[in-house]
Design a protein around this nucleic acid. Structure first.
Lengths: 196, 196
DNA sequence: GCTAGGTCTTGAGAAAGGTTAAGAAATCAA
DNA sequence: TTGATTTCTTAACCTTTCTCAAGACCTAGC
Protein backbone atom coordinates (compact mmCIF):
# COMPACT_ATOMS: atom_id res chain seq x y z
CA UNK A 1 0.00 0.00 0.00
CA UNK A 2 2.88 2.42 0.67
CA UNK A 3 5.02 1.50 -2.34
CA UNK A 4 4.34 4.58 -4.43
CA UNK A 5 4.38 6.77 -1.34
CA UNK A 6 7.83 5.83 -0.10
CA UNK A 7 9.36 5.78 -3.54
CA UNK A 8 8.10 9.37 -3.85
CA UNK A 9 9.37 10.46 -0.45
CA UNK A 10 12.76 8.81 -0.96
CA UNK A 11 13.09 10.75 -4.17
CA UNK A 12 13.40 13.87 -2.06
CA UNK A 13 14.77 12.90 1.37
CA UNK A 14 16.54 10.05 3.15
CA UNK A 15 14.38 7.97 5.47
CA UNK A 16 15.53 5.35 7.99
CA UNK A 17 13.57 2.12 8.55
CA UNK A 18 12.42 3.41 11.91
CA UNK A 19 11.24 6.68 10.44
CA UNK A 20 9.34 4.84 7.74
CA UNK A 21 7.56 2.74 10.32
CA UNK A 22 6.66 5.80 12.31
CA UNK A 23 5.46 7.73 9.29
CA UNK A 24 3.17 4.87 8.30
CA UNK A 25 1.29 5.12 11.56
CA UNK A 26 -0.03 8.60 10.69
CA UNK A 27 -1.75 7.51 7.51
CA UNK A 28 -4.88 5.55 6.85
CA UNK A 29 -5.75 3.96 3.49
CA UNK A 30 -8.98 4.68 1.68
CA UNK A 31 -10.50 3.57 -1.61
CA UNK A 32 -12.94 5.68 -3.53
CA UNK A 33 -15.03 4.87 -6.60
CA UNK A 34 -15.28 6.80 -9.81
CA UNK A 35 -17.34 10.00 -9.31
CA UNK A 36 -17.26 9.62 -5.52
CA UNK A 37 -16.53 12.81 -3.56
CA UNK A 38 -13.54 13.08 -1.30
CA UNK A 39 -14.49 16.64 -0.39
CA UNK A 40 -17.50 18.82 -1.11
CA UNK A 41 -17.75 22.57 -1.17
CA UNK A 42 -18.63 23.95 2.24
CA UNK A 43 -16.89 21.20 4.16
CA UNK A 44 -13.52 21.56 5.81
CA UNK A 45 -10.69 19.69 4.13
CA UNK A 46 -9.58 17.47 7.01
CA UNK A 47 -7.00 15.36 5.18
CA UNK A 48 -4.15 15.46 2.77
CA UNK A 49 -4.59 12.64 0.28
CA UNK A 50 -1.72 10.85 -1.38
CA UNK A 51 -2.72 8.94 -4.50
CA UNK A 52 -1.32 5.40 -4.61
CA UNK A 53 -3.47 4.50 -7.59
CA UNK A 54 -6.17 6.16 -9.68
CA UNK A 55 -7.01 9.74 -10.56
CA UNK A 56 -8.56 12.65 -8.65
CA UNK A 57 -9.55 16.16 -9.60
CA UNK A 58 -10.28 19.30 -7.64
CA UNK A 59 -12.51 22.03 -9.04
CA UNK A 60 -14.82 24.82 -8.09
CA UNK A 61 -18.20 25.75 -9.49
CA UNK A 62 -19.05 29.36 -10.32
CA UNK A 63 -22.40 31.18 -10.02
CA UNK A 64 -23.37 30.03 -13.49
CA UNK A 65 -22.78 26.40 -12.54
CA UNK A 66 -19.63 26.08 -14.63
CA UNK A 67 -16.88 23.84 -13.23
CA UNK A 68 -13.29 25.09 -13.20
CA UNK A 69 -10.57 22.45 -12.85
CA UNK A 70 -7.90 23.42 -10.34
CA UNK A 71 -5.79 20.25 -10.10
CA UNK A 72 -5.47 16.68 -11.13
CA UNK A 73 -3.62 14.08 -9.07
CA UNK A 74 -2.69 10.56 -10.05
CA UNK A 75 -0.17 7.99 -8.80
CA UNK A 76 2.48 9.73 -6.73
CA UNK A 77 0.70 13.07 -6.29
CA UNK A 78 -0.97 14.79 -3.35
CA UNK A 79 -4.44 16.22 -3.36
CA UNK A 80 -6.15 18.61 -0.95
CA UNK A 81 -7.53 22.08 -0.60
CA UNK A 82 -4.48 23.44 1.17
CA UNK A 83 -6.22 26.64 2.22
CA UNK A 84 -9.03 24.79 3.94
CA UNK A 85 -6.70 22.13 5.34
CA UNK A 86 -4.36 24.67 6.90
CA UNK A 87 -6.80 27.33 8.00
CA UNK A 88 -9.78 25.19 8.98
CA UNK A 89 -12.06 27.26 6.76
CA UNK A 90 -14.83 25.65 4.68
CA UNK A 91 -13.54 24.68 1.28
CA UNK A 92 -14.69 26.32 -1.93
CA UNK A 93 -13.63 23.25 -3.89
CA UNK A 94 -14.95 19.86 -4.76
CA UNK A 95 -12.61 16.90 -4.93
CA UNK A 96 -13.74 13.67 -6.57
CA UNK A 97 -12.40 10.66 -8.46
CA UNK A 98 -12.15 10.62 -12.24
CA UNK A 99 -10.88 7.05 -11.99
CA UNK A 100 -11.34 4.66 -9.06
CA UNK A 101 -8.56 5.44 -6.60
CA UNK A 102 -6.54 4.13 -3.67
CA UNK A 103 -5.47 6.84 -1.26
CA UNK A 104 -3.42 7.41 1.86
CA UNK A 105 -4.98 10.00 4.13
CA UNK A 106 -3.41 12.05 6.87
CA UNK A 107 -5.41 14.33 9.13
CA UNK A 108 -4.55 17.90 10.08
CA UNK A 109 -3.42 17.04 13.59
CA UNK A 110 -1.49 13.98 12.46
CA UNK A 111 0.18 16.08 9.81
CA UNK A 112 1.44 18.52 12.42
CA UNK A 113 2.46 15.66 14.73
CA UNK A 114 4.32 13.87 11.99
CA UNK A 115 6.29 16.97 11.02
CA UNK A 116 7.37 17.49 14.62
CA UNK A 117 8.23 13.87 15.31
CA UNK A 118 9.90 13.20 11.98
CA UNK A 119 11.77 16.38 11.03
CA UNK A 120 12.88 14.90 7.75
CA UNK A 121 9.23 15.02 6.70
CA UNK A 122 9.23 18.73 7.43
CA UNK A 123 12.04 18.89 4.92
CA UNK A 124 10.14 16.68 2.47
CA UNK A 125 7.14 18.98 2.52
CA UNK A 126 9.26 22.11 2.24
CA UNK A 127 10.77 20.63 -0.94
CA UNK A 128 7.40 19.45 -2.18
CA UNK A 129 5.93 22.90 -1.65
CA UNK A 130 8.89 24.51 -3.37
CA UNK A 131 8.27 22.41 -6.44
CA UNK A 132 4.59 23.12 -6.29
CA UNK A 133 5.28 26.85 -6.24
CA UNK A 134 7.42 26.54 -9.33
CA UNK A 135 4.88 24.57 -11.31
CA UNK A 136 2.02 26.83 -10.24
CA UNK A 137 4.05 29.83 -11.28
CA UNK A 138 4.61 28.33 -14.71
CA UNK A 139 0.95 27.61 -15.14
CA UNK A 140 0.09 31.12 -14.00
CA UNK A 141 2.51 32.74 -16.42
CA UNK A 142 1.18 30.66 -19.27
CA UNK A 143 -2.34 31.60 -18.29
CA UNK A 144 -1.52 35.30 -18.18
CA UNK A 145 0.70 35.64 -21.21
CA UNK A 146 -0.50 33.10 -23.77
CA UNK A 147 -3.36 32.77 -26.22
CA UNK A 148 -5.61 29.71 -25.99
CA UNK A 149 -3.54 27.90 -28.61
CA UNK A 150 -0.26 28.74 -26.89
CA UNK A 151 -1.64 27.57 -23.55
CA UNK A 152 -2.51 24.22 -25.07
CA UNK A 153 0.89 23.89 -26.73
CA UNK A 154 2.59 24.81 -23.47
CA UNK A 155 0.64 22.15 -21.60
CA UNK A 156 1.33 19.59 -24.32
CA UNK A 157 5.03 20.30 -23.95
CA UNK A 158 5.24 20.37 -20.17
CA UNK A 159 2.68 17.71 -19.26
CA UNK A 160 1.76 15.43 -22.17
CA UNK A 161 0.61 12.73 -19.73
CA UNK A 162 -2.14 15.03 -18.50
CA UNK A 163 -3.53 15.53 -21.98
CA UNK A 164 -3.51 11.79 -22.60
CA UNK A 165 -5.17 10.79 -19.39
CA UNK A 166 -7.70 13.57 -18.72
CA UNK A 167 -10.95 13.91 -20.71
CA UNK A 168 -10.77 16.77 -23.14
CA UNK A 169 -13.47 18.95 -21.65
CA UNK A 170 -11.65 18.85 -18.33
CA UNK A 171 -8.38 19.78 -20.00
CA UNK A 172 -10.16 22.77 -21.55
CA UNK A 173 -11.44 23.82 -18.15
CA UNK A 174 -7.96 23.40 -16.67
CA UNK A 175 -6.63 25.77 -19.33
CA UNK A 176 -9.42 28.26 -18.74
CA UNK A 177 -10.91 27.90 -22.22
CA UNK A 178 -14.13 26.34 -23.53
CA UNK A 179 -14.28 22.76 -24.86
CA UNK A 180 -15.32 24.15 -28.25
CA UNK A 181 -12.24 26.32 -28.47
CA UNK A 182 -9.99 23.42 -27.54
CA UNK A 183 -11.62 21.24 -30.16
CA UNK A 184 -11.02 23.87 -32.82
CA UNK A 185 -7.41 24.31 -31.73
CA UNK A 186 -6.71 20.59 -31.99
CA UNK A 187 -8.25 20.51 -35.44
CA UNK A 188 -6.15 23.41 -36.60
CA UNK A 189 -2.94 21.92 -35.19
CA UNK A 190 -3.66 18.51 -36.74
CA UNK A 191 -4.19 20.13 -40.12
CA UNK A 192 -0.98 22.13 -39.88
CA UNK A 193 1.24 19.19 -38.97
CA UNK A 194 0.02 16.35 -41.22
CA UNK A 195 0.76 17.05 -44.85
CA UNK A 196 0.04 13.59 -46.33
CA UNK B 1 18.55 46.32 9.38
CA UNK B 2 16.87 43.09 10.46
CA UNK B 3 13.79 44.67 12.08
CA UNK B 4 11.27 43.82 9.40
CA UNK B 5 12.89 40.45 8.82
CA UNK B 6 12.65 39.15 12.36
CA UNK B 7 9.21 40.54 12.92
CA UNK B 8 8.16 38.56 9.84
CA UNK B 9 9.90 35.37 10.91
CA UNK B 10 8.55 35.58 14.46
CA UNK B 11 5.08 35.85 13.01
CA UNK B 12 5.44 32.23 11.92
CA UNK B 13 7.92 30.49 14.23
CA UNK B 14 9.61 30.90 17.60
CA UNK B 15 13.25 31.95 17.50
CA UNK B 16 15.74 32.05 20.39
CA UNK B 17 18.30 34.83 20.75
CA UNK B 18 21.07 32.41 19.77
CA UNK B 19 19.19 31.29 16.70
CA UNK B 20 18.60 34.88 15.67
CA UNK B 21 22.28 35.65 15.95
CA UNK B 22 23.14 32.60 13.90
CA UNK B 23 20.53 33.34 11.24
CA UNK B 24 21.88 36.87 10.82
CA UNK B 25 25.28 35.53 9.81
CA UNK B 26 23.90 33.98 6.64
CA UNK B 27 22.54 37.22 5.22
CA UNK B 28 24.20 40.20 3.68
CA UNK B 29 22.53 43.58 3.21
CA UNK B 30 22.29 45.28 -0.14
CA UNK B 31 20.80 48.54 -1.38
CA UNK B 32 19.57 49.01 -4.91
CA UNK B 33 18.40 52.09 -6.73
CA UNK B 34 15.20 52.58 -8.66
CA UNK B 35 15.34 50.73 -12.01
CA UNK B 36 18.48 48.84 -10.99
CA UNK B 37 18.51 45.14 -11.80
CA UNK B 38 18.83 42.51 -9.10
CA UNK B 39 18.65 39.72 -11.69
CA UNK B 40 18.65 39.68 -15.47
CA UNK B 41 17.29 37.05 -17.79
CA UNK B 42 19.90 34.44 -18.61
CA UNK B 43 21.69 34.71 -15.28
CA UNK B 44 21.31 32.25 -12.45
CA UNK B 45 19.36 33.52 -9.46
CA UNK B 46 21.99 33.10 -6.74
CA UNK B 47 20.13 34.72 -3.85
CA UNK B 48 16.84 34.95 -2.10
CA UNK B 49 16.12 38.58 -1.36
CA UNK B 50 14.14 39.76 1.62
CA UNK B 51 12.82 43.30 1.27
CA UNK B 52 13.44 45.44 4.35
CA UNK B 53 12.39 48.60 2.54
CA UNK B 54 11.32 49.55 -0.96
CA UNK B 55 9.66 47.73 -3.83
CA UNK B 56 10.80 45.11 -6.33
CA UNK B 57 9.16 43.44 -9.28
CA UNK B 58 9.88 40.28 -11.26
CA UNK B 59 8.75 39.93 -14.84
CA UNK B 60 9.53 38.21 -18.09
CA UNK B 61 9.62 39.59 -21.60
CA UNK B 62 7.98 37.74 -24.49
CA UNK B 63 9.09 37.51 -28.15
CA UNK B 64 7.20 40.69 -28.95
CA UNK B 65 9.06 42.58 -26.25
CA UNK B 66 6.05 42.81 -23.94
CA UNK B 67 6.75 42.61 -20.20
CA UNK B 68 4.62 40.33 -18.03
CA UNK B 69 4.65 41.01 -14.29
CA UNK B 70 5.07 37.91 -12.20
CA UNK B 71 5.46 39.29 -8.67
CA UNK B 72 5.85 42.37 -6.61
CA UNK B 73 7.63 42.44 -3.25
CA UNK B 74 7.74 45.22 -0.72
CA UNK B 75 8.55 45.47 3.00
CA UNK B 76 8.32 42.02 4.55
CA UNK B 77 8.24 39.99 1.33
CA UNK B 78 10.70 37.69 -0.39
CA UNK B 79 11.77 37.95 -3.98
CA UNK B 80 13.60 35.47 -6.21
CA UNK B 81 13.22 33.26 -9.20
CA UNK B 82 12.68 30.09 -7.17
CA UNK B 83 13.13 27.82 -10.16
CA UNK B 84 16.51 29.25 -11.04
CA UNK B 85 17.57 29.55 -7.39
CA UNK B 86 16.77 25.92 -6.63
CA UNK B 87 17.75 24.26 -9.88
CA UNK B 88 20.74 26.40 -10.85
CA UNK B 89 19.25 27.00 -14.30
CA UNK B 90 19.46 30.39 -16.03
CA UNK B 91 16.50 32.54 -15.12
CA UNK B 92 13.85 33.56 -17.60
CA UNK B 93 12.95 36.53 -15.41
CA UNK B 94 14.15 40.01 -14.74
CA UNK B 95 14.05 41.41 -11.23
CA UNK B 96 14.47 45.14 -10.63
CA UNK B 97 13.49 47.90 -8.25
CA UNK B 98 10.37 49.97 -8.78
CA UNK B 99 11.33 51.97 -5.71
CA UNK B 100 14.78 52.24 -4.15
CA UNK B 101 15.17 49.24 -1.87
CA UNK B 102 17.08 47.80 1.06
CA UNK B 103 17.48 44.04 0.88
CA UNK B 104 18.82 41.10 2.83
CA UNK B 105 20.39 38.49 0.57
CA UNK B 106 21.07 34.85 1.23
CA UNK B 107 22.94 32.64 -1.22
CA UNK B 108 21.95 29.17 -2.36
CA UNK B 109 24.58 27.40 -0.26
CA UNK B 110 23.92 29.56 2.79
CA UNK B 111 20.24 28.88 2.43
CA UNK B 112 20.82 25.13 2.56
CA UNK B 113 23.28 25.54 5.44
CA UNK B 114 20.91 27.71 7.41
CA UNK B 115 18.04 25.25 7.05
CA UNK B 116 20.23 22.42 8.32
CA UNK B 117 21.76 24.38 11.20
CA UNK B 118 18.56 26.13 12.26
CA UNK B 119 15.74 23.63 11.78
CA UNK B 120 13.16 26.14 12.86
CA UNK B 121 13.96 28.01 9.66
CA UNK B 122 13.14 24.86 7.71
CA UNK B 123 9.77 25.13 9.37
CA UNK B 124 9.52 28.84 8.62
CA UNK B 125 10.07 28.25 4.93
CA UNK B 126 7.69 25.32 4.81
CA UNK B 127 5.00 27.61 6.22
CA UNK B 128 6.02 30.45 3.94
CA UNK B 129 5.81 28.17 0.91
CA UNK B 130 2.46 26.84 2.05
CA UNK B 131 1.07 30.35 2.14
CA UNK B 132 2.63 31.13 -1.18
CA UNK B 133 0.94 28.11 -2.73
CA UNK B 134 -2.42 29.26 -1.44
CA UNK B 135 -2.07 32.79 -2.76
CA UNK B 136 -0.74 31.61 -6.12
CA UNK B 137 -3.65 29.22 -6.39
CA UNK B 138 -6.10 32.04 -5.76
CA UNK B 139 -4.48 34.20 -8.39
CA UNK B 140 -4.49 31.30 -10.82
CA UNK B 141 -8.16 30.55 -10.27
CA UNK B 142 -9.05 34.19 -10.71
CA UNK B 143 -7.00 34.27 -13.88
CA UNK B 144 -8.69 31.19 -15.30
CA UNK B 145 -12.28 31.80 -14.27
CA UNK B 146 -12.80 35.56 -14.31
CA UNK B 147 -13.31 38.28 -16.88
CA UNK B 148 -10.93 41.24 -16.95
CA UNK B 149 -13.29 43.28 -14.79
CA UNK B 150 -13.76 40.47 -12.28
CA UNK B 151 -10.00 39.95 -12.07
CA UNK B 152 -9.54 43.59 -11.21
CA UNK B 153 -12.32 43.50 -8.62
CA UNK B 154 -10.84 40.34 -7.13
CA UNK B 155 -7.44 41.98 -6.83
CA UNK B 156 -8.98 45.15 -5.38
CA UNK B 157 -10.65 43.02 -2.74
CA UNK B 158 -7.73 40.74 -1.87
CA UNK B 159 -4.84 43.16 -2.25
CA UNK B 160 -5.86 46.82 -2.29
CA UNK B 161 -2.37 47.86 -1.21
CA UNK B 162 -0.97 46.50 -4.46
CA UNK B 163 -3.30 48.64 -6.55
CA UNK B 164 -2.41 51.71 -4.55
CA UNK B 165 1.32 51.26 -4.70
CA UNK B 166 1.97 49.78 -8.15
CA UNK B 167 1.77 51.88 -11.33
CA UNK B 168 -1.34 51.08 -13.29
CA UNK B 169 0.28 49.65 -16.38
CA UNK B 170 2.13 47.17 -14.19
CA UNK B 171 -1.08 46.21 -12.42
CA UNK B 172 -2.63 45.56 -15.84
CA UNK B 173 0.27 43.35 -16.80
CA UNK B 174 0.02 41.52 -13.47
CA UNK B 175 -3.63 40.79 -14.27
CA UNK B 176 -2.81 39.68 -17.80
CA UNK B 177 -4.76 42.47 -19.48
CA UNK B 178 -3.74 45.58 -21.42
CA UNK B 179 -3.40 49.01 -19.78
CA UNK B 180 -6.15 50.27 -22.09
CA UNK B 181 -8.56 47.62 -20.87
CA UNK B 182 -7.77 48.40 -17.25
CA UNK B 183 -8.29 52.08 -17.88
CA UNK B 184 -11.69 51.36 -19.43
CA UNK B 185 -12.66 49.11 -16.53
CA UNK B 186 -11.79 51.75 -13.95
CA UNK B 187 -13.82 54.35 -15.82
CA UNK B 188 -16.79 52.03 -16.00
CA UNK B 189 -16.60 51.15 -12.30
CA UNK B 190 -16.24 54.80 -11.29
CA UNK B 191 -19.31 55.70 -13.32
CA UNK B 192 -21.36 52.86 -11.85
CA UNK B 193 -20.59 53.69 -8.22
CA UNK B 194 -20.84 57.49 -8.10
CA UNK B 195 -24.40 58.64 -8.51
CA UNK B 196 -24.08 62.21 -7.29
C1' DG C 1 -27.14 -5.32 -32.49
C1' DC C 2 -29.62 -1.26 -30.43
C1' DT C 3 -30.45 2.62 -27.76
C1' DA C 4 -29.31 6.14 -24.09
C1' DG C 5 -25.98 9.08 -22.24
C1' DG C 6 -22.14 11.28 -22.50
C1' DT C 7 -18.39 13.45 -25.26
C1' DC C 8 -16.53 15.74 -29.16
C1' DT C 9 -17.03 18.57 -33.39
C1' DT C 10 -18.74 22.18 -36.27
C1' DG C 11 -20.93 26.53 -37.59
C1' DA C 12 -22.98 31.23 -37.17
C1' DG C 13 -23.47 35.24 -34.52
C1' DA C 14 -22.16 37.95 -30.30
C1' DA C 15 -19.19 39.78 -26.93
C1' DA C 16 -14.92 40.71 -24.75
C1' DG C 17 -10.68 42.34 -25.12
C1' DG C 18 -6.61 43.69 -28.08
C1' DT C 19 -4.44 47.01 -31.41
C1' DT C 20 -3.33 51.30 -33.09
C1' DA C 21 -3.08 56.00 -32.68
C1' DA C 22 -3.77 60.40 -30.72
C1' DG C 23 -4.33 63.50 -27.10
C1' DA C 24 -4.58 64.68 -21.91
C1' DA C 25 -2.48 64.53 -17.53
C1' DA C 26 0.98 63.89 -14.41
C1' DT C 27 5.96 63.84 -13.24
C1' DC C 28 10.55 65.28 -13.39
C1' DA C 29 14.57 67.67 -14.26
C1' DA C 30 16.87 71.76 -15.96
C1' DT D 1 8.21 77.39 -15.10
C1' DT D 2 8.65 75.15 -18.75
C1' DG D 3 9.92 71.77 -21.86
C1' DA D 4 10.60 66.67 -21.99
C1' DT D 5 9.27 62.22 -20.66
C1' DT D 6 6.38 59.04 -19.02
C1' DT D 7 1.84 57.46 -17.82
C1' DC D 8 -3.00 57.35 -18.46
C1' DT D 9 -7.23 57.91 -21.18
C1' DT D 10 -10.20 57.69 -25.11
C1' DA D 11 -11.93 56.22 -29.58
C1' DA D 12 -12.43 53.39 -33.87
C1' DC D 13 -11.53 49.21 -35.62
C1' DC D 14 -10.13 44.29 -35.55
C1' DT D 15 -9.20 39.57 -33.66
C1' DT D 16 -9.98 36.03 -30.53
C1' DT D 17 -12.77 33.51 -27.89
C1' DC D 18 -17.40 32.55 -26.16
C1' DT D 19 -22.26 31.27 -26.73
C1' DC D 20 -25.79 28.73 -28.50
C1' DA D 21 -27.38 25.11 -31.25
C1' DA D 22 -27.17 21.07 -33.96
C1' DG D 23 -25.26 16.95 -35.34
C1' DA D 24 -21.59 13.13 -35.19
C1' DC D 25 -19.25 9.81 -32.56
C1' DC D 26 -18.46 6.60 -29.01
C1' DT D 27 -19.28 3.43 -25.37
C1' DA D 28 -21.97 0.74 -21.87
C1' DG D 29 -25.80 -1.70 -20.66
C1' DC D 30 -29.75 -4.15 -22.25
Amino acid sequence: MFEVFFSQVKDKVLLSEAEQKLVKTFFSPKKIRKKQYLLQEGNICRHLAFVEKGLLRSYNVDEKGVEHMIHFAWEGWWMADMLSFLSDEPSTYHIDAIEEAELLLISQTDFEKMLLKVPVMERYFRILFQNNIISKERRLISSITNSAEEKFLHLSATNPALIKRIPQQLVASYLGITPETLSRIKKKLAKGSSKT
